[in-house]
Design a protein around this nucleic acid. Sequence first.
RNA 1: GUGAGCGUAGCUCAACUGGUUAGAGCAUCGGACUGUGGAUCCGAAGGUUGGGGGUUCGAGACCCCUCGCUCACCCCA
Length: 421
Amino acid sequence: MTEDTKTRKIAAIKGTKDILPQEARKWQKVETVAREIFERYGYREIRSPIFEATELFKKGTGETSDIVIKEMYSFKDKAGRSLTLRPEYTPSVVRAIIEHRLYLQPQPLRFYFIGPMFRYDKPQKGRYRQFHQIDIEVFDEKDPAIDAEIVEMADHLLKTLKVTGTETFVNSVGCRKCRPAYHKELRNHADKARKLLCVECQRKIDTNPLRIFDCKISGCQEVSQRFPKITDFICHECEEHFRKFCAYLDLFNIKYRLEPRLVRGIDYYTKTTFEVITPALGAQDAILGGGRYDDMMKVFGGPDMCGIGFAVGMERLVSLVPFENEETQSIYIAYLGDLAKELAMDVAKELRHEGIECLVEYRKRTLRNLMSRANKLGAKWVLIIGEDEVKTGRYQLKDMMTGEQKTVKRELILKTLKESS
RNA sequence: GUGAGCGUAGCUCAACUGGUUAGAGCAUCGGACUGUGGAUCCGAAGGUUGGGGGUUCGAGACCCCUCGCUCACCCCA
């Protein structure tokens, strides 16, 4: 080993980060709550590989999406196959459903998933190259009631996690039949107003005219307000779908805002799209977003089956969940001497097997030090086993909150703990 | 990918217009206190000032490169 390799620090690579124990607690909580809620709505977990054939995302996510054009972690394996670390989850589920003929099963096609995604973006707050999503997908439900149901479920998840101050935006982006006409119409309008738009927006006329709606320059906003709205332009079927979707949201008493400017940067969406945002996150303000994709299954050679789903950004969500310091119910065993050590190990084993968190540290310390350690670690109780205790078989059990201490026989430790907790 | 700002101990920050051996608080570990925690006092450990190069008698500070973070654009979760 050269001196160079010995001393150079290896750090987590750009756009990735470690989730340290305190933070991980919060993640666990969020994951647990999400699982419980989703299961209650009839969803089941599905897990797919972290990498797939590059082709899957080109076809699924879309050749013209930013994700595919510039954000994929693609590489060749030793056999020369082009593989990609998944940038999103939906194409993988669709692939799995077709591959395993899941649509032939009697179970409802409702899936959820929690795991890492990879996008070669420029990292910022709330945006990482390896990030995590909670994802849900429903297949074979055409009724707009399901669109409203998943928005309600998302809302329920956020409320359960005490995330407040969010706003829900909804829109319809039309379907294959009506969207091209709208794009054309919008482009025409924008082109006529070209001179009134900023340089950026002039560029958007050709690339993505929908994005002109996003411009923050007041001149552009004034102009774009007179552009046709997609909701006035969509076909009868899409319009009906959207109207019912909104009516069902009202039924669920979900507050939302129509946002004709809401365009999601993924090619496959049809009809319903929605997003939940919060001002608390800054520029990366979307906690959760999703929509309907009626054509993807067919594109992959599966049955003509519609899909709808949403993805929650874990990093963003976790950062909004209020911190709760959960009380640990742990016991710290402070022993003095070799005989006591063996007793401590034995008691610890028993308590752990009975479901009690128990810590023994194998380092010579004074009792004062042991108590101090127990205090710092936040132990609820300390069990003291010293020479006297070894002789009498009666141990000292101290409640660290009240400072009360009692003498307890070995056989009664467990009972005493359970009674006082 | 474009533009701007910032990188000093685990954390929060000092160090004058470039000038001795880069300091403090908090946290950590130990001692005062030999079988009883939280308080106080004392002490220790902790840094190639993100990394590399340059200017200079002399660089934490100035210049260039690079890496990383932050903000905005873009995009999205």
